[in-house]
Design a protein around this nucleic acid. Structure first.
Lengths: 176, 176
DNA sequence: GGAGGCATGTAACCGGTTACATGATTTA
DNA sequence: TAAATCATGTAACCGGTTACATGCCTCC
């Protein structure tokens, strides 16, 4: 039964929409899921070979510059479907700013405030990046009938804004 | 200059409040930072030895059952302070439910809705866990004068609640 | 005396980033 | 023709979890 690696999941899913090369997959990740599900070349290329070996992918065509375009096999589609219908829910969150906040009783109030300010600014910048860089692509998908990428993006902006708002309140509280 | 490993940061910081054994540190992590900064025995014990070797820690006492209680040295305090005043801000977020949401155009609406429902429920359970299991300890810290652990916890509950609320809205939109 | 919690520690493995290596093709 | 971009791939290393091994101490 489907025991796909994290990178395999995103590879199969992106290929389901249309055939892609490893390079294409990396780009797709970067303009969409990077924030909550990344994938580097060091993961993608070996994984593509493994998935091909396992019969879940096949090479559709080999183009110039060594470009290899992969597509799903029937077995690959089945595996993807199993995962999409599954209930595995890996959730990881690591936040160094928050760790510093947690220990801010150990430092002077000004430094603590500075940290909170940086946390808020980082979130505001992320939201701005989402809107300017990611939203156009998500909107394009939506126009083509795939609405969930835009929803996922809205989820991301909504909670980062919620974090930013909370941090702004804390700033006000901490200000001298 | 301070180039502490992720686990070193949390070890030094917890030791700053009071000396602890590796076992103690693990417990402290579990009732407080686990959600955004975990540490397993497999990380803690080797790291304690490395930090001792590097002169940032020293063994305060060896008790029964092989218990070794560590405390910070002056050098350790300095390193901790450097980190607390620094601006490094590692931020990692991985969310398999969100990935499935992103690709939900590939599945039937009922399955997609089921996934959203699970995402919301998971967050509600996490918030309930925070309130019942973590808040008492954070409140205790606050009573002893350390207010930031409670603030960090409130930050966590606030944004998980924001996510849950957003997901509830999406559920309403997706319901047939 | 047995169960359960205390306590340290190691080994195997996994997943990830980064840097490096290589070279083809396009564009200025 | 030089620079930028396309494109694949490997190696080194890091950080993390999990499972395992060991044994003491306390309490019932």
């Amino acid at each position: 039964m489907s025991n796909l690696s994290p990178t395999a999941k995103i590879i199969l899913a992106f290929l389901r929409f249309r055939p892609r090369s490893g390079y294409d997959i990396k780009q797709s990740v970067e303009i969409s899921t990077q924030f909550f599900w990344g994938a580097s070349f060091g993961q993608i290329y070996p994984e593509l070979r493994r998935l091909e070996q396992a019969g879940l992918l096949e090479v559709e065509s080999e183009g110039r510059r060594g470009r290899k375009v992969y597509r799903l096999t029937t077995a690959g589609e089945r595996e993807l479907d199993d995962w999409l219908r599954g209930d595995s829910g890996l959730f990881q969150y690591r936040d160094e700013g928050l760790l510093r906040l947690f220990f801010s009783d150990l430092i002077d109030p000004e430094t603590a405030l500075e940290n909170v300010r940086r946390m808020r600014e980082w979130r505001e910048q992320a939201v701005a990046f989402f809107r300017s860089q990611l939203e156009p692509h998500a909107q394009e998908d939506a126009d083509l009938g795939a609405r969930f990428p835009l929803r996922a993006l809205e989820f991301g902006t909504a909670w980062l804004e919620a974090q930013a708002a909370w941090l702004a309140e804390l700033e006000a509280e901490l200000e001298p």
